[in-house]
């Protein structure tokens, strides 16, 4: 699993950090997505995949 994030598309909704808090974080000042674990361990993968699906702006992807 390889998670990608495009911060030029991100709208800082925070859905990813809410859904998979260990995998994603939000920048303090701009709220933009930061991928903490681009290749999350098995136990976090389901939440990570859900977060990608929930992203309202389409900024996240899985390769």
């Amino acid at each position: 699993m390889r998670i990608t994030a495009d911060t030029t598309i991100c709208i800082s909704a925070g859905m990813c950090a809410l859904t998979a808090p260990g995998v994603f974080d939000q920048g303090d000042n701009d709220g933009l997505v930061a991928v903490v674990l681009p290749d999350p361990p098995e136990e976090l993968r389901k939440a990570a995949a859900e977060a990608v699906r929930l992203c309202p702006s389409g900024a996240l992807g899985i390769r």
Partner: peptide, 15 residues
């Protein structure tokens, strides 16, 4: 839309 939204986002992050 993004120009205005970004001015506000800092006050609405999870943290």
């Amino acid at each position: 839309h993004s120009f205005y939204r970004r001015m506000l986002i800092q006050e609405f992050t999870l943290k």
